[in-house]
Design a protein around this nucleic acid. Structure first.
Lengths: 197, 197
DNA sequence: AGGATGATATGATGATGATCATACAAAAAC
DNA sequence: GTTTTTGTATGATCATCATCATATCATCCT
């Protein structure tokens, strides 16, 4: 059937969003083409009208995740001082809510160990996305007058990603909370972020 | 054919080691039963004489990885002061060698994002292993006279794991080296570890 | 020596999943 | 109103993989 002019683009976007959510939760290997199509209310056959292969979908979905994330970060830091923005980022990143919202959280943490196994295209998108997020953090450090803003951003991001991943892997809820709290405390102290509570 | 009394146990151990290496490199989903058997010089059919299911193999292999790692850590810290042991651990963890040795490196980083997707058995083994490694680090902090050794260990481990995972995901070798170096520098400073060079 | 044992091999089964050829249906163009 | 056009659906194909039933065959035990 013939659809409105932008229909295909809309469908593509829907597929990307569905894939971005599913891949974060279940990983690139456990997510099937048919799953993604079904989540968009379609059947598996039409998939190849939108993407040349599953690998291309995975790569594009990774791009989508980072776009979503960047938009969220920019929105959250708008109109805030650098210190406030950083404090908010850390607080959200290491919250129970973020830990439990695997379908929409930070792609760096969600896919950290999957990445080295993916094909070149997907790896490139991920690396670029990670660099952009790192740049957003570094910009705040620069605004704070830090000399080595890039190094600070790398270190902060590493602890954020590691703590979130470990908290998600931990089976004991109390220990999981503790992991988040300990890194939150450490990050606040070492970057001089005030606790607004 | 009838084999020596401990032959089956030896084979089991061989399978576990092969699985432990393969799973770290390719992930639990991309590693097939036949792959593991082939790496042990056997054919796929005999697998179920050793493990009841693939899931059981994955869980046992995760246990194996942590055993290997703990032994390595204990060996490396034997006869060293707490500060020396911590410094060495950080230096090795964030080395290019560790980054590039995916088949034998720290399982926490290698499987971080796979874990939440595995079955309960595997998750338990991983969580226990992570707790034991954390305890080894915490013990060094305690020996150094730290009051909140557990919190310090959590924070250090988080940055180690995050930095290694991100360095492995990065496609640009220079940036990858930088990520390792920045976290190494940050960890040294904040925990007062001397650079022996 | 010869049968029993037990680890491994062979080969099959059923499920799942990526890919693709072809059919369809309805809006748009005339 | 008829003809194109073009997203989507149907159904098939081929590969991979976990699982398991059964066969093999060298050694141990009697």
């Amino acid at each position: 059937m013939r659809y409105a002019a932008e229909h295909k683009q809309n469908t593509r976007k829907t597929l990307l969003k569905a894939a971005a959510a599913a891949i974060r939760v279940d990983g690139p290997d456990r997510v099937g083409v048919a799953d993604v199509m079904a989540k968009a209310g379609l059947t598996h056959g039409g998939f190849y009208a939108h993407f040349p292969s599953k690998g291309a979908l995975v790569a594009a979905a990774i791009g989508q995740m980072f776009e979503e994330r960047e938009a969220l970060i920019l929105e959250a830091s708008a109109g805030r001082s650098p210190a406030e923005a950083l404090e908010l980022y850390v607080r959200h990143y290491l919250s129970r809510k973020h830990r439990d919202a695997k379908h929409s959280g930070c792609p760096i943490a969600a896919l950290a160990s999957d990445l080295p196994r993916l094909e070149a295209d997907a790896r490139k998108r991920y690396a670029e996305g990670a660099r952009r997020i790192r740049a957003l953090i570094a910009a705040q450090f620069t605004a704070l007058g830090c000399a080595d803003a890039g190094a600070q951003a790398d270190s902060m991001l590493a602890e954020l990603v590691g703590a979130l991943a470990m908290a998600r892997a931990e089976t004991d809820p109390k220990r999981s909370d503790e992991i988040l709290a300990h890194s939150q405390q450490a990050l606040r102290r070492r970057f001089g972020l005030e606790d607004p509570r």
